[in-house]
Design a protein around this nucleic acid. Structure first.
Length: 570
RNA sequence: GGGCCUGUAGCUCAAUGGUUAGAGCAGGGCGCUCAUAACGCCUUGGUUGGGGGUUCGAGUCCCUCCAGGCCUACCA
């Protein structure tokens, strides 16, 4: 038994996430966590809401609520949806927690003591009407390059030229529309990442088994242009971890907070403290402090590609720079994007399917299966309703669901709702057990390697073996001349359901639980010995015929959804 | 502009430089009747984006061009 720390990139508090966000981090992380728990390992699976930053403030203002209240409400909403998708976090924390505040300030102080913080005075755009500094992208104006009138202060969406807000003609605040903007001097703390370039690079170079996506993005940041740049870790905002605090090794940072990307990854650690505070655990240090038991922990992070720089550069720089024995990540599993029907999912335009809507129209298992079996691992992937309908109907309803249905109903009609007695395995059954054992090994291998799509394909192939067996054994024929043999075949068929339930649990936990309940096999463990697992349900054991596991999606239904989700979210 | 990724069957994807490039779905044929009009077997289908090169041998390595995507440090 090994110990596995697993974190999913923490979703931003600003609204409900879409399916692309889900498949990029939380869902595969959950798959892995469930698999490892199923194998009997000790797992701590953490996630949280990322609550600081300008967008949260603006969203709260738009909702007419204090930002703390807005975040508290949205956290509950996200937590409930996460439950709906059966995301099995050991704790779902908040980056605005007292724990994170204390730890963020502690680490910043440590970095300063190690000489890795420097103060920089710079000029930033200030909006008088909004009474706040504005990030570049919150300034809009006419592009000096192409004349586009809604160019953002960081880049023009029309001609893609990178801009400085001072380049814009007729600049205005996107918050209020005010043109009363001025450049003001402001002081910020910078993390001297450049000092740690060699150390970070050596660390990244040692990670030869990571997805190319993870390492190539990291190397790009390390070596682009003049190499790794220092990074500002404070912002002129009120909502966040205060940058000025008792015992701070600097002055003059009043009214400023740490940059959200500085405190967000720290929440991974703080979340484990929240986990203890919530009474769910007793010792967080054995997961995070290599001097206090965490040196045998394997730490795996899951995230979308947009998050990779912060996890390969920023957070490791914080951890390593602190010179304290924190556990560093061992493996970064990164994902590309999921597109929606020929374009991108769009939160602002309400294009695509959002997590709450998905749960309204279908149970979570449908989404889990499709998303995971089509996870954007090697390149961006695309969601289409036709593909979704075809995959779900074929894989879940026909191959797995119908298998459960056919064997339980056959047994009920010939032997009753009890595992039938008599007969012994022949060559055919031995061959089946061997074939399944081989595929289970492959399945475990893919899961261990976090090869999500390949694992899904292997699992499906295991389901298919059951149908192949029933087809060739044909207990409905055998029953006529040799009822005892038919009983043995049926018994094996019923046992396959229990095996499938356990193997499938990481992907489709609800259906798995239904299958186990129907078979009266709730405590079934991982089939380390497939042959034994296929005899787990003894003769005379009672079962029930479950309801249809997966209903099919009809064409008319699909068309309705297609229309409903094409445009503006209602 | 720079960097990275992707391009393989109608669709979604596989293939440590090594037999005749494989699966699933869709299409075609046959079988089965336990089952959710389900299942099984067989089968059609590819100049691996174009061109050049290295090699005994290239989907794979190199060069170049084309197409799509992402990132480019003040959104997160």
């Amino acid at each position: 038994m090994a110990r596995h720390l697993i974190t999913s990139a923490i979703p931003y508090i600003n609204g409900i996430k879409h399916l692309g966000n889900l498949v990029g981090s939380q869902l595969p992380a959950d798959l892995y966590a469930r698999y490892l728990r199923g194998r009997g390992h000790e797992v701590l699976f953490l996630c949280a809401t990322d609550e600081h930053g300008t967008p949260a403030e603006l969203a709260a203002a738009k909702a007419g609520k204090p930002v703390a209240e807005y975040c508290a409400e949205m956290h509950v909403v996200q937590a409930r949806i996460a439950e709906g998708f059966r995301l099995s976090f050991d704790h779902f924390g908040r980056s605005s927690s007292a724990e994170n505040k204390a730890l963020t300030q502690h680490l910043a102080k440590r970095l300063a003591e190690e000489g890795l913080i420097r103060e920089v005075t710079e000029k930033q755009m200030y909006s008088v009407a909004d009474a706040r500094f504005l990030p570049d992208r919150y300034i809009e104006g006419t592009c000096p390059n192409c004349g586009f009138e809604s160019a953002r202060g960081d880049q023009c969406d029309n001609c893609t030229k990178q801009l400085d807000p001072t380049d814009l003609i007729n600049p205005r605040s996107t918050v209020s529309g005010s043109t009363e903007l001025e450049l003001r001097e402001t002081k910020h703390l910078y993390l001297r990442q450049s000092e740690m370039k060699d150390k970070l690079e050596a660390w990244i170079d040692s990670k030869t088994d990571w997805p190319v996506l993870s390492t190539s993005i990291a190397k790009k940041w390390l070596n682009d242009g003049d190499g790794l740049q220092d990074r500002g870790i404070t912002r002129d905002l009120s909502w966040g971890v205060p940058a000025q605090f008792d015992g701070a090794p600097w002055e003059g940072m009043d009214g400023k907070v740490f940059y959200v990307w500085f405190d967000a990854p720290i929440e991974y650690i703080a979340c484990s403290q929240e986990w203890v505070a919530a009474g769910k655990g007793t010792d967080w240090e054995r997961w995070w402090r290599t001097d206090k038991g965490a040196d045998d922990v394997t730490y795996t992070q899951f995230m979308g590609k947009d998050n990779v720089p912060f996890h390969t550069i920023g957070f490791p720089a914080t951890i390593l720079g602190s010179a304290e024995p924190w556990k560093l990540v061992d493996y970064i599993k990164s994902f590309n994007y999921l597109n929606y029907d020929g374009g991108q999912f769009s939160t602002s335009r309400g294009r695509g399917v959002f997590m709450d809507q998905a749960l309204e129209i279908l149970p979570s298992d449908y989404w889990r299966w499709w998303l995971l079996s089509h996870a954007p691992e090697s390149s961006d992937a695309e969601f289409t309703w036709e593909n979704f309908q075809a995959s779900v109907n074929k894989d879940l309803a026909d191959v797995l669901g119908n298998f459960v249905s056919r064997i339980t109903k056959f047994c009920r009609s010939k032997f009753g709702e009890t595992v039938p007695e008599g007969g012994a395995w022949g060559a055919q059954e031995e061959a089946l057990a061997e074939a399944i054992a081989g595929r289970v090994k492959a399945y475990e291998g893919f899961m261990d390697e976090k090869e999500v799509r390949k694992a899904a394909a292997e699992l499906r192939a295991i389901w298919v073996l059951g149908n192949e067996y029933l087809q060739s054994a044909a207990p409905w024929s055998t029953f006529k001349e040799d009822p005892v043999k038919a009983a043995m075949q049926t018994r094996l068929g019923l046992n396959l359901i229990g095996l499938y339930a356990v193997l499938s649990a990481p992907f489709i936990p609800n259906a798995s639980a239904t299958m186990l309940a129907a078979m009266g096999a709730a405590g079934a463990g991982w089939p380390e010995d497939v042959k034994a697992a296929l005899s787990a349900l003894p003769a005379g054991h009672a079962f029930t015929v479950p309801e249809v596991l997966f209903a099919k999606i009809a064409d008319e239904q699909r068309e309705e959804w297609q229309t409903r989700f094409a445009g503006i979210r209602s």
